[in-house]
Design a binder for these strands. Structure first.
Lengths: 267, 267
DNA sequence: GAACGCAGTTGAACATGTTCAGGCAGAACC
DNA sequence: GGTTCTGCCTGAACATGTTCAACTGCGTTC
């Protein structure tokens, strides 16, 4: 669940059974920044080597303190070569984040395989993220910063085709579909919820980034507290009294949240 | 309501009647980055000159494209001098953001002076923010990025003593207190809500930053839609059926949100 | 097998944020 | 009046992200 930098293969399929339907193969078509279409095996190796070296140094010294020169030297390549594979320092974060997302999805699916209670499944999925990301808490601030930049193609918010987000949303679809709750809800809601749950994760991530407690215990507690509540809200949404509110909320999500993250509203 | 860069005076009292109780005088004590205690009048002028030049250039060319050398040259000072007042380029954003917050509070109070309907007051407050920030939408990404960095003292989330946040929260306390809704709610909720409303603003800001529509029309629509809904939720919270959920929500906020932004939970 | 093309690679040059040793002027102190 | 101190200011030097013209080696073409 950890030691991510040591796992090999840049593509998402490294982890066991992580083939989320929406996860694109390897690098996908010409993402700005990363190279498109790795041509040779050697190329792939060099890319991985640079990424892993960078991850290691980021962990050791933090993001700002790690210079591109240091990464290049440590990896035994030239600075220019590092830029050949990652057109900016930022994109190293992208490479890292993509990997982490795939690993998270795999780990979460594993862990919740034998649980059908929705709240539990959700908690497992979120906790799994915290565990996967734990080794990188120190420099996490940095990729959070980057994610918050709309002009950057790294942002999971603005960039519709962000593969990492697709993978994560798919995971949350599983969280819901594999639970005893799903059949009880109307189809429309089932369609909406995965994205909302992904937003829940984003909130947790935000909380986590700012969390300075030992082992991010506070965030873990936040997850333990917020997941049953989320489950309860979803559950209650079935009752008549809550109809108007639910309708409002649905409308808000359909009209304003989903389109923003690149989905056409369900008509 | 706009043309912020042209208004004078670095302190928050430039706008009319912006004296929010919690707003500290001028620069406060030794904020890292800005200088502490402006000693002379000339000093204050130079600082303002640099800040205003920077704001203008940021608007004209964007944040990244504006170099510190350009700012210095344009302002007729040396690079070193700019760094004397703002210890990093980032801190220029801080200076800007502080000002904008004060101006926003003043403008919002003005606009909602004659309205007692809670939803309307909230909508006015949020729309006022959008208007105040409008001229800076282009480079807003940047200060949002900065705000998202927990290691930076600029973050309104992590830095408890952030004067801008205090000012904003105070504004939302007014939004509530000046409405017909406040007397109907229990004291505890009234205590909690201003911070929650501030979070609402933060969500709007997040939305706004990523909004690429003309005149950020989409965000404005989002405000129009979400404020009555927020009002309705708060209103309904008084009824018995919603008690358990409200209690959960309160607990979550008290235990996890408020402490994080530097308030001790109400016992 | 010679010419060519192109992915991969290099390192020096460049741009820009940041630092620093010092200079200048006015106030304070003797 | 001279000395010293200190706030304000300077610009060259430095650190680091990024670019680019050129080089290498391997496969393809003729």
């Amino acid at each position: 669940m950890d030691d991510l930098a040591a796992t090999n293969g840049t593509d998402g399929t490294s982890g066991a059974g992580a083939e989320a339907p929406a996860a694109p193969a390897a690098d996908g078509p010409a993402l700005p920044g990363g190279r498109a279409q790795p041509k040779t095996d050697k190329s792939e190796q060099t890319r991985a080597l640079i990424l892993e070296t960078a991850m290691r140094l980021f962990q050791e010294r933090g993001y700002e303190k790690t210079t591109m020169r240091a990464i290049a030297t440590e990896a035994g390549v030239s600075v220019g070569n590092a830029y050949y594979y990652f057109s900016a320092k930022e994109f190293l974060i992208q490479g890292f984040y993509d990997r982490m997302t795939y690993d998270h999805a795999a780990d979460a699916r594993n862990r919740m395989a034998h649980t059908r209670d929705f709240a539990e499944r959700l908690e497992i999925a979120l906790t799994s993220w915290l565990d996967t990301a734990a080794p990188y808490h120190e420099f996490a601030a940095q990729f959070f910063r980057t994610a918050a930049d709309p002009s950057s193609s790294l942002s999971p918010f603005s960039n519709e085709s962000h593969p990492a987000r697709a993978t994560a949303v798919e995971l949350f679809r599983d969280v819901l579909q594999g639970s005893e709750l799903a059949p009880k809800l109307d189809a429309e809601l089932v369609e909406l919820l995965p994205d909302v749950l992904w937003l829940h994760l984003m909130v947790v991530v935000l909380y986590w980034v700012f969390d300075r407690t030992e082992d991010t215990e506070r965030t873990r507690e936040f997850v333990r507290r917020s997941t049953p509540m989320a489950a309860r809200v979803i559950n209650l949404s079935r009752y008549r009294v809550f109809r108007p509110i639910v309708r409002d909320a649905k409308g808000l999500i359909q009209d304003f949240i989903l389109p923003t993250i690149g989905k056409t509203a369900v008509k």
